[in-house]
Design a protein around this nucleic acid. Sequence first.
DNA 1: TAAACGTGGAC
DNA 2: TGTCCAAGTTT
Length: 348
Amino acid sequence: MSAKAPSIAAPLLAWYDGHARSLPWRAPPGAAMPDPYRVWLSEVMLQQTQVATVKPYFERWVARWPDFASLAAADSADVMAAWAGLGYYARARNLLACARMVADRHGGTLPDTEAELRELPGLGTYTAAAIAAIAFGRRAVVVDANVERVVARLFAIETPLPAARIAIRDAAESITPQRRAGDFAQAMMDLGSTICTARAPRCLLCPLRGDCAAFAAGDPARLPVKAAKQPKPQRHGTIFWLERGHEVLMVRRPGKGMLGGMRALPTGPWGEAPTRLEGAPVGADWTVLEHEVSHAFTHFRLDCTLAVAAIDRHTDIGDAQWWPIDRIDSAGMPTLFAKAAAVFRSRK
DNA sequence: TAAACGTGGAC
DNA sequence: TGTCCAAGTTT
């Protein structure tokens, strides 16, 4: 532990004792430790996702599946639908796989070491360390985007991300205390999300101001330096709305790839140029709507043509799944298709 | 190492 | 409206 450790951990933990956010996955007042199931679930939901977005999903989730046993017994379709709108759907697939692994191989109890946690699906370096520290009180070096930012400023690390990750991890290790590592991790994250923010940090409220090299240098918001991002390419596709009576045709997307495993409306291929009616689920008298749906994913933008048709209520088109149109919101589709469904339903 | 992988809040 | 960015993991 470096000489800097006491000057960081002690004031940070003191600040945390007075300013910790009350969050549904944290231990209630008086409880020694939080429920590992809730810590695990919240940490997976919080991957690349803000607290305000996660809260309602978390509350619904624990009401429906309160522990590993109940989740392990759940149907995949129900789990994917419950995750709809939260994004990064591989998390939901891995979440169910992890719950079943915990139920089958670990007796329904999450392992309590960082190394064992790291072996479970969906748990990477960050999440395994976070669970080990927060749920089990083990000393672990927990580095998320908040910690990266706080540490880069505390130590005035000028190397651009992602190359700076090694130096940042070493610096984080040097200030992580032996005791209360879980509180320390959560304190760093609370500090990063409320005070040491990406833009316009509130340094005058910061308990670490006196130890911060970036504050001393005068421009903490400049750090961490990040590499330039690639522009997002534009892609085009078509979403098909096939009605049969009061129902609409739905599909389940392939298990891997974009929106993998999710219930969805049928689409054609997504290409460089508009694809019109290519890939339509059936030969039918398709009408193309004037209104398009645009959606921005992480690494490309998508403009979708919307095509609608109706077939006779007795027509059989194989293993199709038909969904009641007036209950389309309960289908649990990703946001792209929820947006498209709203347009289809409101058309004149 | 780099690309794939969602979404919504904040400004 | 556009851009940045967020409690990252997997391949």
